[in-house]
């Protein structure tokens, strides 16, 4: 099942990249139409959505942990944060390259850029908190779940700023050909599947690791 998921993800990804680089390529900014910089959109938008999905997973499993106290949920939360941080890093890096190509600056404090930076910082703070709490695993898990819920309260702001607030950063994109739509849909599906696979693999690894540690202690 896992192997099938990986194969489908990579096929979709290669398909999306191939279309995006050939028939579905987006023209560059008016000043420099030959520049391929706008193609980064195919990686940028899916990774922004995936980093938000990972945060949602984190919220759900954190509430679940506080409610049930099952250690597996805490490990899934850690997996979601690590994968979410990966996608948030890709989001900020691709956004920065795009911004340089489009507006000539690497970073500028517009609402969406500020809020996606906040998202990245929240993920990093979670990992710092997790690594610096001594004591029992239950206590650490409970505190991390509390932080995750408080941190999630900042996320609606990220979504509001991306959709409703006037910004030089565009809120939506008009496709000019069916190929572009196809490439976008494929890259979106591939990225979401990739995130799901990563969370699955990482959580599985963490669970095996904790089982092994329990056996060593016993």
């Amino acid at each position: 099942m896992r192997r099938l998921l990986l194969v489908v993800t990579f096929l979709l990804m290669f398909g999306a990249i191939w279309i995006a680089l050939t028939v579905g390529a987006i023209k560059g900014p008016p000043a420099n139409p030959d520049s391929p910089v706008r193609n980064i959109f195919y990686a940028h938008v899916p990774s922004s959505i995936c980093s938000l999905i990972c945060f949602l997973v984190l919220l759900v499993v954190s509430i679940g942990y506080l409610y049930t106290g099952r250690p597996v949920l805490d490990l899934v939360a850690l997996a979601a944060v690590e994968v979410g941080l990966l996608f948030a890093t890709v989001l900020n890096a691709t956004g920065s390259i795009f911004s340089r190509g489009e507006w000539g600056v690497w970073w500028t404090p517009t609402p969406r850029l500020v809020t996606s930076a906040i998202l990245w910082f929240l993920y990093v703070a979670y990992l710092i908190l997790r690594s610096s709490l001594p004591g029992s695993a239950q206590r650490r898990a409970r505190i991390c779940a509390v932080f995750a819920i408080i941190a999630f309260l900042d996320v609606p702001l990220v979504i509001i700023s991306a959709r409703f607030i006037p910004d030089m950063h565009r809120a939506s994109f008009e496709f000019t050909s069916t190929w572009q739509t196809a490439a976008f849909v494929m890259s979106m599906m591939a990225t979401v599947l990739l995130a799901a696979t990563f969370i699955w693999l990482r959580a599985d690894l963490l669970i095996s690791e904790s089982k092994l540690q329990e056996e060593i202690v016993l």
């Binding site: 809020t115 906040i118 910082f121 929240l122 990093v124 703070a125 710092i128 908190l129 610096s132 709490l133 001594p134 004591g135 505190i143 509390v146 932080f147 408080i150 941190a151 309260l153 900042d154 702001l157």
Partner: peptide
């Protein structure tokens, strides 16, 4: 409000003050 909650969270940690500053400043950024 945020500082008081996180103060309870980090009270057992050795790196108490640095951890508190990271957590509080991150959540207060918006």
């Amino acid at each position: 409000s945020v500082g008081t909650l996180f103060s309870a969270v980090v009270r057992v940690s050795r790196a108490r003050s640095s951890l508190l500053s990271v957590l509080v400043l991150v959540v207060l950024m918006p």
